[in-house]
Design a protein around this nucleic acid. Structure first.
Length: 848
RNA sequence: GCGGACGUGGCGAAAUGGUAGACGCAGCAGACUUAAAAUCUGCUAUCCGAAACGGGUGUGCGGGUUCGAGUCCCGCCGUCCGCACCA
């Protein structure tokens, strides 16, 4: 006798074991089937899987399983983004070795993932902290080094005083470290850089081809790279200062060059620094600028301030025209050349500045060819015709830009140029738990790459974290080595690589992992690009830009053939939950409670422990600090993997946030049981009458087609709704062989979402093989079409009646049927019919 | 400030310019049961109406295009996200 209830406790692990033993989900590089590489962003091994991972991986899993069923050879791998600071923090706080901590976390999280029944190829698993992986990474770094894409420079870096490390610009948010939240300081250090700016144009232009990416992400990347085109030229200083005879400026508005009324340079500009040496007031002003420069959350309200240097420069188009030179707080040293010419009439900042320092304001662009009135409080930045500008007068803005650039280039005082917001990628980290940079510093030979046959440069195990800073610095036997070139005593580089490098090529290693090289180019060509990449929107810029850069860089070195690593990208929403809290009193903040500690009742909630009310807060992303988290293990214990998976896919569109609710997971659990009852009924029902149920057949085939389309579009919530509809109709339909057949097919339709239940059903239906190997059901196209359709009947666009007609009825027939309707006649009430609009198989609209 | 997305029942949401609210949750009523759970059946946008296989209204607000607008266009309001003195 079969259990009347589906028991995930025994079924889940049984099928998980079966999948592992039969190795069904291991991808075959040599398969002749069409390939599909489905990838979710690999997790950082923090210790526990969180519900966001479950949602992310469930989506990828449904697609991967579906693609397998539709005849694809699927690569669906998993691994660990295992380097990074939390491991070192744990080492410092708990005295455990980063490696031990990380591997324990990986073991725990892998067990959690396995319980969810994901169709993953575990044979390709690796962690980025494996010496084998980072050794190959070092080889790729050296390839880039030899290819001229790596350089070292002394530069002011963002120093996080809490984490004691350097941060990339992207890791500094509002002047604070992205992880520690500490105020970032500027420090001068020798750093390794990757020339991502060499690829700035490619990275922008490549976005055009990424049709499978969200428009939003493409735009964010484009803005991040921030390309602008304009004119670069040099202002000649009328009074040279030491070695400085001129000032290089950049402008995107060379057309307004005759509206210039001053030149402004950044406080950190070399000329400003030189002047400040003999000018105490200027030095103080520059200090002020630097202070507000980094701490500025209130940048917007900050007043435009300047310091008149007393110097003047000559206008490039008029030797008689002199412009004053200011040091200004709104000019940034790290953009363009750190100097600008100010055109107050057509730039708001310049206008504010000019008003403050009583500089001339000359309009040089006339709005719509007419308006040449003086500028008041608002700069004019729109299109128009150039005026007051000698040879440019009468030109449109765009033509004038080109005219000035042409003139500058002909006369040799300037060039058309492009500048980017994007900076080169500083990859050095003063950290232990990362990929060692494979370089040896020799006094006579300089920076010497470690010979490739000596890779990997492994992290030493015997390190201690009882002092702040990088333990590699203090590890004498690791640090002191002989120069590979001349044999003299030399020092190993003690910085490690930014962990974003680890995740910039892991998808290549998943696809091909030979021992002797990072990957095999020919095998990569079979799998890349990733057909569908799924992850969080928080990686829209950093990770995804770096991964695109690495792929392009490796292509330029001839290492790979693909330029763009991810053909389609999907960014899923967060899992959210309301918060429960009590105030601890004025100014003391709140105490938060976990949902399991709280009992909800209508609009209020109480703490189970003391029966007293707690405040119900906003529905926000699950986070440890707000305690509004649910533990995946606990809910899998309670409901089984399939109910959890099903809930992750239901209701909310996958790109939007999913509000977690107890009622929701209960509903999914009930549905799993409902399916199970159908499966049992069909399995024990050989005697069903052999009567055709055309309606049910049609619904079945519509569902097969509809669910397939929805899964392909990652519209899982719609696929779920269609499955519900089919189940509703099956339950209402009379006992028949058609009904049994529909139920058997339903097992395959639902298999990608609830795989354990589906395997159990498949066995119940006496199949020897796994449902994981079963094909997606064929659609009988002839069954998709309805014989009869419901036609809407409108009078003046308002619905008055509906009527049922044979599909494909001609216009005449429909019109006659509609006009014959009693309700229509009542509404028309003898009025003149001016027009009748007939949309076949859809509606009739009678216009009176 | 600039750029973008979004706004539909009590809630999550559906809807190639063609019957708004499919499907789920919650709720209400009932069946089964000694009882509970589980399960099953029906109802559930809103207003008027005893009810109607009656009517009105309705997709943030105001206009427009169209025989017909949740969907397209213009202008507001609100929410969220990204960038932010970028020359």
């Amino acid at each position: 006798m079969t259990d009347q209830r589906f028991n995930p406790l025994s079924a889940d692990s049984r099928w998980q074991k079966r999948w592992a033993e039969t190795r069904v989900f291991e991808a075959d590089d040599n398969s002749s089937r069409p390939r599909s590489y489905v990838l979710e962003m690999f997790p950082y091994p923090s210790g526990r899987i969180h519900i966001g991972h479950v949602r992310n991986y469930t989506m990828g899993d449904v697609l991967a399983r579906f693609r397998r069923m539709t005849g694809h050879e699927v690569l669906h791998p998993m691994g660990w983004d295992a380097f990074g600071m939390p491991a070192e923090n744990a080492a410092i706080e708990k005295g455990v070795h980063p490696s031990g901590w990380t591997h324990a976390n990986i073991d725990a999280m892998k067990a959690q993932l396995k319980r969810l029944g994901f169709a993953l190829d575990w044979s390709r698993e690796f962690a980025t902290c494996d010496a084998e992986y980072y050794g190959h990474e070092q080889a790729l770094f050296l390839d880039m080094f030899e290819g001229g894409l790596v350089y070292r420079k002394e530069s002011a870096v963002n120093w996080d005083p809490v984490d004691m490390t350097v941060l990339a610009n992207e890791q500094v948010i509002d002047g604070k470290g992205w992880r520690s939240g500490a105020e970032v300081e500027k420090r001068k250090l020798s750093q390794w850089f990757l020339k991502i700016t060499d690829f700035a144009d490619e990275l922008i232009e490549g976005l055009d081809g990424l049709d499978g990416w969200p428009e939003k992400v493409r735009m964010m990347q484009e803005n991040w790279i921030g390309r602008s085109q304009g004119l670069t030229f040099r202002f000649q200083l009328d009074q040279p200062v030491g070695e400085f005879g001129d000032i290089e400026v950049f402008s995107t508005r060379p057309d307004t060059i005759f509206g210039a009324s001053f030149c402004a340079i950044a406080a950190d500009h070399p000329l400003a620094l030189a002047l400040a040496e003999n000018d105490k007031a200027l030095a103080e002003f520059a200090d002020d600028c630097r202070k507000t420069g980094t701490a500025a959350a209130d940048i917007e309200t900050q007043e435009k301030k300047g310091y008149d240097t007393g110097l003047t420069v000559t206008h490039p188009l008029d030797p008689e025209w002199k412009l004053p030179v200011f040091v200004a707080n709104f000019v940034l040293m790290d953009y363009g050349s750190g100097a600008v010419f100010g055109v107050p009439a057509h730039d708001q900042r310049d206008l504010d500045f000019a008003r403050k320092y009583a500089l001339p304001v000359t309009r040089v662009v006339a709005e719509s060819g007419q308006d040449d009135s003086p500028i008041a409080d608002e700069a004019y930045t729109g299109p128009g015709q150039i005026i007051n500008s000698r040879f440019l007068d009468g030109m449109e803005v765009e033509a004038a830009k080109q005219a000035v650039i042409d003139r500058a280039e002909t006369e040799g005082w300037g060039t058309g140029s492009t500048v980017y917001r994007l900076r080169d990628w500083g990859v050095s980290r003063q950290r232990y738990w990362g990929t060692p940079i494979p370089i040896i510093h020799c006094e006579s030979c300089g920076a010497v790459p470690v010979p490739k046959d000596q890779l990997p440069v492994e992290l030493p195990e015997d390190v201690s974290f009882d002092k702040p800073g990088n333990p590699l610095e203090r590890h004498a036997s690791w640090k002191h080595v002989d120069c590979p070139k001349c044999g003299a005593q030399a020092l190993r580089e003690t910085d490690t690589l930014d962990t974003f490098i680890n995740s910039s090529w892991y998808f290549l290693r998943f696809a091909s992992q030979p021992e002797d090289q990072p990957f095999d180019k020919d095998v990569l060509a079979k799998w890349l690009p990733v057909a569908q990449y799924i992850g969080g929107i928080e990686h829209a810029i950093l990770h995804l830009l770096y991964a695109r850069f690495w792929t392009r860089a490796l292509k330029s070195l001839g290492k790979v053939d693909v330029a763009e690593p991810f053909a389609c990208l999907f960014t899923q929403g967060m899992v959210t939950h309301e918060t429960y809290s009590r105030s601890r009193g004025k100014g003391k903040g709140d105490t938060f409670y976990n949902p399991v500690e709280v009992k909800r009742d209508g609009d209020s909630a109480i703490l189970i422990a003391d029966g007293q009310p707690v405040e119900i807060g906003r529905v926000i992303k699950m986070s440890k600090t707000k305690k509004n988290v649910v533990d995946p293990d606990e809910i899998v214990d309670q409901y089984g993997a399939d109910a959890v998976r099903f809930f992750m896919l239901s209701d909310s569109p996958p790109e939007r946030d999913l509000p977690w609710s107890e009622a929701g997971i209960e509903g999914s659990w009930r549905f799993v049981q409902r399916l199970w009852r159908l499966f049992i009924a069909a399995a024990n029902n050989d005697q069903a009458p052999d009567e055709a149920d055309k309606d049910l057949q049609r619904k079945l085939h519509q569902t097969i087609a509809g669910v397939a389309e929805d899964i392909e579009n990652l519209s899982f919530n719609k696929a779920v709704a269609k499955i519900f509809e089919l189940v509703n109709q099956i339950e209402k339909s009379a006992d028949s062989q058609d009904r049994n057949e529909a139920i058997r097919t339903l097992a395959r339709i639902a298999a990608p979402m609830v795989p354990h239940l589906a395997e159990e059903a498949w066995a119940l239906f006496e199949h020897e093989d796994l449902i994981a190997n079963a094909p997606w059901p064929e659609v009988d196209e002839s069954l998709l079409v309805e014989d009869e359709v419901t036609i809407a009947v409108q009078v003046r666009g308002k619905l008055r009646d509906t009527l049922v007609a044979a599909k494909g009825s001609d216009r005449e027939t429909l019109e006659q049927l509609a006009l014959a309707s009693e309700k229509v006649q009542r509404t028309v009430d003898g009025a003149e019919i001016r027009k009748v609009i007939v949309v076949p198989d859809r509606l009739v609209n009678i216009v009176i």
